[in-house]
Design a protein around this nucleic acid. Structure first.
Lengths: 217, 217
DNA sequence: CGCGTCTTTGAGAGGATTCAACGTGTGTGG
DNA sequence: CCACACACGTTGAATCCTCTCAAAGACGCG
């Protein structure tokens, strides 16, 4: 945490060559942020691109009625901000925990890339992955019901293991699934009554992933 | 249209070097599709990446209740499909008009990129742009009301000119804004009654962009 | 003219949020 | 040590937004 950030870590995070890592380190500024820092606000003209190295950042948009919805959560290896030129920021960017990142002004990376094409290759892979994730999220928002999104989120967090520990905080789960505490609570209550999940202290087990998957609608 | 596709067009579309264009042409297969072709279906394992050269493609997801929602529309210079490896396709991919594209198997491009890093640079720019667009769409879906999305879509299509011609087809507008014909019709009726827009034959004029912008909620 | 597509409008239903109330556990300050 | 605030979870009832269903009119086209 406290030790200075080493370029070799970049290699691991981006799975790129030492060449690329050192080029990035040479042009970017390393920053550390305490939890809850707000890097940018909805409506700002954002002229930065950040590479997350440690910790997670969330994109949160607040709608006119005051509700906040989470557009995404990004972790090490993800890029946040504007690549080519400054642009309006659609959402707040907030640190969920202690975060280390490398900062570049918008437009700098394209320059670097033309000098060191290897960097572009690494970027393309990262952007493609993030695009896919964002598209999947858009799909969920567009085609699933509120309860369906809760169920999908549970399955996603459980992974193959089939359980989640520590058990998810209901209100946080609701935020991630773009719905309310109450709806999330009702959805989980239903799952528990039907014996599809089991909540025991520090662990939430998914008894029947099959049934749960069928309820993702 | 009918003439064979020339690499020089790629340079213009991607604004890349001849080197990159010829590398892409060498590794990809040019295809032409008639309108309404469905390139891939929701749930397919899709092992391709396409570069659109002419025409537009839509990503359409159908939800369990049968409604289709449009996740995005892509045109020349956009990439659709899976970059690194085959993956489940979240939505149908359909041609809105006659489309020409260059097809690559998933995973091929990363290979090319490692041999010809210039290609990676071009890809990074394109992916960054698409990521930004997708994020903006996700934001709209998450924070705006149905009517708000209609209003926003109208403003977007009007651009600075302040009018749209030919006037938008209501049902198509509804699809783009992820709502129903009826809701879109009511939203536009309201705008017209309040004198915010004017529909005259082959032209729809936005009388008061300011008022309209304030209604985007 | 008949047909299909598109639009408009009304009425009804349904899903999700909002409001409200209550119970719990945790940490803080008196 | 206790009172208290506070965050979280649960549950019920009311409200609201949006979709669905239904009907009717406008328009272009063969």
């Amino acid at each position: 945490m406290a030790e200075p950030f080493a370029p070799s870590k970049l290699e691991a995070i981006l799975s790129c060559s030492p060449l690329v890592a050192s080029a990035l380190m040479r042009h970017g500024a390393v920053r550390a942020l305490p939890p809850r820092t707000r890097l940018a606000a909805q409506g700002d003209v954002l002229g930065m691109l950040w590479l997350i190295v440690e910790g997670r950042l969330a994109l949160e948009a607040v709608s006119s009625n005051g509700r906040v919805s989470r557009l995404g959560v990004h972790g090490p290896g993800d890029w946040i901000g504007n690549y080519a030129r400054p642009a309006l920021c659609v959402a707040d960017v907030v640190a969920l925990e202690r975060v280390t990142l490398v900062a570049f002004p918008s437009g700098r990376l394209p320059e670097i890339v033309s000098g060191e094409p290897q960097v572009g290759a690494a970027l393309a892979g990262a952007f493609a992955r993030q695009l896919e994730a964002t598209l999947a999220r858009l799909d969920a928002r567009s085609t699933l019901t509120s309860k369906g999104r809760i169920f999908a989120e549970l399955l996603r967090r459980a992974g193959d293991a089939g359980d989640i520990s520590p058990p998810p905080v209901v209100s946080e789960l609701a935020l991630a699934a773009q719905t309310t505490r109450e709806t999330a609570s009702r959805a989980m209550g239903e799952l528990e009554r039907r014996g599809i999940i089991l909540r025991r202290g520090e662990r939430l087990s998914i008894v029947s992933p099959r049934l749960l998957a069928e309820m993702v609608v």
